[in-house]
Amino acid sequence: MKKVLVGLLLVTLIGAGLTGCGTKTGSADKKIVIGASATPHAEILEQARPILEKAGYELEIKEYADYVQPNLALDSGDLDANYFQHKPYLDQFNQENNTKIVSAAIIHYEPFGIYPGKTKTIEELADGAQIAVPNDATNEARALLLLEAQGLIKLKEGVGLNATKNDIVENPKNVEIVEIEAAQLARSLQDVDLAVINGNYAIEAGLNVSKDAIAFEDKDSVAAETYGNIIAVKEGNENREDIKALIDALKSDAVRQYINDTYEGAVVPKF
């Protein structure tokens, strides 16, 4: 009789363990763990927290200082979602790392800006001046397109979002393109003439694209559509109820108002 009871107990425990695998169940599905850049993503998520609480969800925000770890953490299952990147970067990351991460929603857009360093205006730029750009492929292409729009360089016909500095076919001022990790660009300003800086890192450094940049992407440009910042999840989790609740909270009127009031054009809602 004891053996029978032990056997039944083991079956029950194994069954309970199997039920806990795969999709989130029980109390675990009421907690959303999301990775984010500190600025503006984590700040925006904080505004969604009370909305999620009313819907019965607990939000845990894990901040990251780079663009690699939050995707690795999402792929490994340590995160339910992340919020820091645009889709071109995600597509490149998936290709290079054999991951299956997808976009669940576009939340906002951060205009790239050209910021003054040792040189204060584009007109004052000397022959051979140094311009710093992000060193990851998708953001470097975006920076080069912005420099081209200002007449500083001309890129090979049709390269678009695949552009690298090797695709520069005209360079009337012989500017030197200096590739630097995106997170370090703002700190490089004192060492270069100009720098093209990602929106989140500019904000983090106390720079506002509409006030401090000498040129920036238009909010109605192709870049605004292409480089919207997304909520990313593992493939197959896009329609999970907790992810839907997260997106609904981020797309609320309260969050839109917070973005508009706080960032003054440096962050633009895409909903």
Rank of each mutant, 00 (worst) to 15 (best):
K3L: 07
K3H: 08
K3P: 00
V4L: 14
L8R: 02
L10A: 12
V11S: 07
L13D: 01
I14W: 06
A16Y: 09
G22N: 12
K24T: 05
G26Q: 08
S27Y: 10
S27W: 10
D29M: 15
K30Q: 14
I32K: 01
I34Y: 00
T39D: 08
I44N: 01
L45I: 04
E46Q: 13
R49F: 05
L52R: 05
E53Y: 03
E58W: 02
E60D: 13
I61C: 07
E63Y: 00
A65D: 12
Y67R: 03
Q69S: 11
L79Y: 07
D80N: 14
Y83E: 06
Y83R: 06
F84A: 08
Q85Y: 09
P88I: 11
P88G: 13
L90H: 06
N98K: 13
I101D: 07
S103Q: 15
I107G: 00
Y109I: 04
E110L: 14
P111V: 05
F112R: 10
F112Y: 15
G113L: 09
I114S: 04
E124D: 15
A126P: 14
D127V: 00
D127S: 06
G128Y: 09
G128L: 07
G128A: 10
Q130S: 14
I131G: 02
A132Y: 04
V133E: 04
P134H: 05
T138D: 11
T138H: 06
A141I: 06
A143E: 08
L144A: 06
L147N: 04
A149Y: 01
G151L: 11
E157D: 15
A163T: 11
D167W: 08
E170R: 01
P172A: 10
P172N: 12
K173V: 04
N174G: 13
V175L: 09
I180L: 04
E181L: 12
L185R: 02
Q190Y: 00
V192N: 01
L194G: 01
N198H: 08
G199S: 03
N200D: 14
I203C: 08
A205K: 11
V209E: 05
K211I: 11
K211V: 13
I214V: 14
A215D: 11
A215W: 05
D218A: 13
A224W: 04
A224C: 08
G228Q: 02
I230Q: 07
V233K: 01
K244T: 10
L246G: 01
D248G: 02
D248I: 02
S252D: 11
S252N: 12
A254Q: 15
V255W: 01
R256M: 07
I259F: 04
I259V: 13
Y263C: 07
E264W: 01
V267T: 08
P269N: 10
K270T: 12
